[in-house]
């Protein structure tokens, strides 16, 4: 369960401008060890940009990011070795077999026992039979599980998940959520999670951060926010916050 004493991600006054227009406009938040933290907000709010800055894929205009208590700028290799990323919008090369993709990334992460690790994870995600298949031949649900398998290869302490359940049918989406909860329970992995499905967020996130127009609008547990805004559920809270200054 979340431990508020251990900060895994500390984002401080983070800003990103694209050609003079702010996509992320002075965002600050923390993510604590063992929690599943939802990063919520309407389309274009700045969620993906924030996540990619935490991954050092986008250079911030200003502000600081610390992961595991270390500044990304000087500790990139160490930090990236202990975290991972998954999103259905970023797929693995389709012209490699599933097994080849997994081996490649296991090696890139410096996994000691490549075959052992892959065997363990394909059993966990029940995709052993996919190993000899071409990655391009997989269905969306299978690809999601493959992406998550890749994301656990290095036994990450932190997972960044950008809309991991989008475009999944309700059954597979539900199973994916159960898997994420199981990963957290068994491995104590901290997760920063974006999703547009508020029911899902209520189900699996310990805490949520709302951003809109590149700014943090509110944060707290789903329960507390529902109470604070006097709404029925998180979906209504979302609508309220999203429509505040439009």
């Amino acid at each position: 369960m979340p431990d508020k004493n251990k900060t895994i991600i500390a984002v401080n006054n983070l800003r990103k401008e694209f050609s003079g227009v702010a996509a992320v406009d002075g965002v600050s938040f923390n993510v604590y060890e063992g929690e599943i933290c939802g990063l919520l907000g309407p389309n274009g709010a700045g969620k993906t940009t924030t996540i990619q800055m935490i991954l050092d894929l986008i250079t911030p205009t200003s502000g600081e990011i610390q992961v595991f208590g270390l500044p990304m700028k000087r500790h990139r290799e160490e930090i990236l070795g202990k975290m991972n990323f998954s999103s259905p919008y970023v797929s693995l090369p389709g012209n490699l077999k599933v097994s080849e993709n997994l081996k490649t990334f296991a090696r890139l992460y410096g996994v000691k026992d490549v075959n052992g690790k892959i065997a363990e994870l394909v059993d966990f995600f029940e995709i052993r039979e996919l190993l000899p298949k071409m990655t391009s031949s997989l269905s969306t649900g299978q690809l999601t599980r493959l992406n998550l398998t890749k994301a656990l290869l290095n036994d990450p302490k932190l997972l960044l998940l950008d809309e991991p359940t989008s475009s999944l049918d309700p059954d597979i989406a539900d199973r994916t959520r159960k898997m994420l909860l199981k990963i957290r329970a068994e491995r104590g992995v901290t997760m920063l999670y974006t999703s547009h499905n508020m029911a899902e967020v209520e189900e699996i996130c310990d805490r949520v951060i709302f951003i809109n127009h590149g700014e943090v609008k509110d944060e707290g547990t789903a329960e507390a926010l529902i109470k604070k805004y006097g709404k029925e559920d998180l979906n209504d809270v979302f609508l309220h916050i999203a429509r505040q200054n439009n």
């Binding site: 991954l55 160490e78 990236l80 070795g81 991972n84 090369p93 990334f105 410096g110």
Partner: peptide, 18 residues
């Protein structure tokens, strides 16, 4: 180009690869 065609640059550069 292979990494660009397969949109794999992101996957590669979120690993510790320099």
């Amino acid at each position: 180009l292979e990494e660009v065609w397969e949109k794999n640059l992101l996957n590669i550069f979120v690993t510790p690869l320099r």
